[in-house]
Every structure is written in C-alpha cells, then in structure tokens.
Amino acid sequence: MKSVEKNIEKESRLIWNFFMSMIYLALVSVILAFGYVALGDDIQALLNQKTITAEDIRNYKPQSNEGGEEVDYNKVVDGIHVYTGLKADPNLQVIIGSCTSCHSAKLITQNKATRAGWKSMILWMQATQGLQDLGNREPIILDYLAKYYAPENMGRRKNIDIAAIEWFILDQKEENK
C-alpha cells in the first residue's frame, strides 16, 4: 500500500513539475518575445558592433541599401535640403555641383562670412586646393553664400544661447562622486 501511495505521489509530483516547467517555459518565451520586440534592433546593433581593424578600413566601401522605402533626394524640410544640410534655394544644384564634389557641405554650413569673405575663400581654394575658375557660376554661388551664410553681429562676445539649453533637474546625490 505504502509503495502504491508513494508511486502516486511520485507521479503526481512528476506531473506537477512538468506542468510547472511548461508554465515557466511559456513565461520565459513571452518575456523573450516582448524583449525582442522592444529591444531586437538594439540587440542586433550591439551584436553587429565589432572592433575595426586596419583591414576593415582598407576594405571599406560605402554601400547602398537595396529595397527599402522611396526616398526623395530633393527633400526639403524647414528650408533645409535634407540630403546635404544646405539651405534650400532655386540655385542649390549649382552649389552642390560646384562645392560638394571636393569637400563636405558641413564646411559651408558651419561657416559664416560676407560676400567678400566667401570670395576670399574661393580665391584661397583656387590658389592652394586646385579649384578651377568657376566662370558664370561664381556670382550665383557668392549670392547664395552671402544670403544664407552671412555673419551675425556678435559683439565682443555673444550671450549664452539660452534657447538651445536643455534644462534638467540636477540630482546631486546621484551625480556627486
């Protein structure tokens, strides 16, 4: 009798354990599934991170993405040509064609100068960097640069750009070393 009871007990324990492990398994799967939905891309990105070797740099070639969505190369948002970051203008293609084949558009967007100042940069590029004569494109380029990338009067020192500040509550108990 005792051994039968023991067997039943053993079996029911087995069934119980099996039942519980199934529940755990289901739970874990659900958590993993949710985790993947939420973090899948980040995990993928993390896995794809690797140390860059000289070999990688040598073999590096810019790639294009096949498929994907339609993208408007001429897209303009808030007056900015998205692809280059330059200010949109009817003559923008002249600027892109003349300037960005040799240097980054950032060299334009981060600088400010008068028409004469931009002219001196063109002369400098012609004297030292092998820039060809720009012909009838030069006045178009200079008009564009002087219009959109003109110096602002900053005085001897500008105020802190308060509009650009991201205000945050400083928790010094957390932050202090």
Partner: peptide, 17 residues
C-alpha cells in the same frame, strides 16, 4: 536612416566620397 535607403548605388553618401 530612411533618407539613406534609396541612394543611387554608384554614388556614395556625401562625406564618404
């Protein structure tokens, strides 16, 4: 990244030329 998805194949992104 959407802006990069349809770049012409022969033209690398500006800055990587």
């Amino acid at each position: 990244v959407v802006f990069g998805s349809n770049l012409p194949k022969e033209l690398p992104p500006i800055g990587l030329l």
